[in-house]
Design a binder for these strands. Sequence first.
DNA 1: AAAAAAG
Length: 505
Amino acid sequence: MTTFADLGVDQDIVDALAAKGIVDAFPIQEQTIPLGLPGQDIIGQAKTGTGKTFGFGIPVVQRLGLNPEPGVKALIVVPTRELAVQVYEDMDMLTQNRATSVVAIYGGKAYEGQIDQLKAGAQIVVGTPGRLIDLNNQRLLDLSNATEVVLDEADKMLDLGFLADIEKIFTKVAQVRHTQLFSATMPGPIVALARRFMSNPIHIRATDPDEGLTQANIKHLVYRAHSLDKDEVIARILQAEGRGKTVVFTRTKRAAQKLVDELNDRGFNAGAVHGDMSQESRERSMAGFKAGKKDVLIATDVAARGIDVDDVTHVINHTIPDDEKTYLHRAGRTGRAGKTGIAVTFVDWDDLHKWALINRALEFGQPEPVETYSSSPHLFSDLDIPAGTKGRIATAPRTQAVRTQPERAADAAAEGSTEAGSRRRRRRRTGSGGEQVGSTFAEGTDAAAAGAPEASGTSTERAADGAGTHDGAGREHHDGKPAPARRRRRRRGAGGGAPTAPAGA
DNA sequence: AAAAAAG
């Protein structure tokens, strides 16, 4: 194992990491830190939950020196306010033993505190585009000395919705600078676009030669949701034994609000995060979820990228996302730092084409919808949901605690899996009627490019030379434990509906 | 097309 000290990281930063129990570097960190420290421009690609933040953050801190002059020297731009808070916290941790201060600049909050910190001489700014430009226009944020610039979730930042803002920001920062772009997904066209803002960048992809397109330690279950009462099923999943924190993604803000209200009505303690909420409420939900006070978070794609919460065991796509990149980022809220996780996706009738797209891009290899939901015990058994013998999926009693379901546990214990399966088979059509579209347990690569993924091993190449649609990064452990063995597990028997057990589970 | 991001 390579330690951060081995990589040439300053002792005070090594100490700050060690105080958090972090000693060994993850693959993406091993590859990018030695290049970032001397100022090489980098496009860094590694899978979700594999340590990209420190990959760019450590060089940023170290390059500013032990006692940087007051004033903004580094700018890290992120796509959402919650991610700004999170990256701010990471950078704040890295700088705790040196005279460098960090400030988070984002909207939905009072200007005052942010302006005060800037006036006090903060050197590192982490922020979202709108407020950054706002303060820059007001001449309260001088970026002209920002010689360290990072775009986190870079492909998103260079997406149409953000591109104009990013272009503007690049005209404001120092023109001779160190630029780093990081993301789990980096489609070829975006890499090409990115070069406009960089100087002779190197494209680092921390990938395992045997890897497929998705994270090895995330198990994927995909169900057709035709005429399925998704609220019921989700409520049922939330009662599963062994479930840790769970994030449920919806397509719209309204759907998120409706679901969180519904779940809370049913007695769960759920929180929501979406753009129609006040920033205060958003942050309260996130904090409650991180602290474990709420173990269910209902979110729009505002929470799809970057958000790092320990022990998220399940991600549920209430609605299938539109593209494979979003799918990958959503699923990536679980299975972080080497842990295992399960991603469950419900595919509505009108969304089958989206599943086809994602299935192809991520190489799940599930050709057609196969088993019906009710004939397959797999969702239930894999999630360890009590099987029950009622004809429909049960609802959590209002007053019941989310995870303590003694009767259901007893129910489940009383039921052998084979028997449960046949019982469910008999129940089909009288049940909820959902159908399993596919279930897979793939591993591996990133699906940045919907097109042809190249099988690449750990690779380093000039960004100039290639489509670079891969991502990849091995598993990594911030807790210093060895990464679980990675094995490519392709499609188990054609049409095989039975999902496998989660890797390492 | 939705969501995000300034207020």
